[in-house]
Deep mutational scan, measured.
Amino acid sequence: LQLFIKTLTGKTSTVEMEPSDTIENLKAKIQDKEGIPPDQQRLIFAGKQLEDGRTLSDYNIQKESTLHLVL
């Protein structure tokens, strides 16, 4: 599924993920695209901070969801 990652600067990146992927996997993919180390990334979806060990489906993240990346 395609996700949009929006940064505080207003920049939006697109990443392709599976519902079974963990937040950790997602942060690794963001690191590949943006060069931001996972330990500096905080991802927010629906007002919640996402935890590394959980999966996208745990948070009911659907295709074309927008996640907010806070550093």
Rank of each mutant, 00 (worst) to 15 (best):
T7K: 07
G35V: 02
K11Y: 13
N60E: 07
T14F: 11
L43K: 01
T14W: 10
T14K: 10
L69C: 01
I30Q: 00
K33V: 12
I36E: 02
K6F: 06
I30D: 01
I44A: 04
L43V: 05
N25S: 13
L43S: 00
G53R: 09
K27T: 01
D21A: 11
K11S: 10
Q62R: 10
G35N: 07
T14H: 08
N25T: 13
G47K: 04
L50Y: 00
I23D: 01
F4R: 10
D58S: 13
G47H: 05
G53Y: 10
T22A: 04
T55E: 03
V70P: 01
N60A: 08
S57L: 12
N25G: 08
A28I: 13
Q49A: 11
F45E: 01
Q41L: 09
S13Q: 11
M17W: 08
D21P: 00
K33D: 05
E51L: 10
L26E: 01
L26Q: 00
L71I: 14
T12A: 06
I36R: 02
G47A: 03
L67G: 02
E16W: 15
L26F: 02
I5Q: 01
I5F: 04
F4D: 03
S57T: 08
K63L: 06
G53T: 09
G53Q: 10
L3A: 01
F45I: 04
K63N: 15
K6A: 07
L8F: 11
M17D: 00
V70T: 09
R42M: 13
T9D: 14
L1P: 03
M17N: 02
R42N: 11
K27V: 02
D58I: 02
R54I: 05
K27C: 01
M17P: 01
G10L: 03
K48G: 06
I5S: 00
Q62F: 09
E18I: 09
A46R: 14
N25H: 13
H68E: 10
D58P: 00
A46I: 06
Y59G: 00
G47F: 04
I36K: 03
I61L: 07
T22H: 04
L71Y: 08
K6L: 10
S65A: 12
L8V: 13
T7L: 15
L8W: 15
I36S: 03
I61P: 02
P19N: 07
T22Q: 04
L3Y: 03
I61C: 01
N60M: 07
F45S: 03
L43H: 01
I61H: 02
N25C: 08
S20P: 03
G10D: 04
E24F: 14
G53L: 08
E34T: 15
K33H: 07
I36L: 06
E51R: 07
L8M: 13
N60C: 04
K48L: 12
T14N: 07
E18M: 14
L69Q: 02
L71R: 08
A28D: 06
T7P: 05
T9R: 10
E24M: 13
F45L: 05
E16A: 09
T22D: 03
L56S: 01
E51S: 07
P37I: 04
Q41Y: 14
E51D: 08
L8N: 12
Q41P: 02
D52E: 09
P38A: 15
A46V: 06
R54H: 13
T22N: 04
Q62K: 12
L1D: 03
T12N: 06
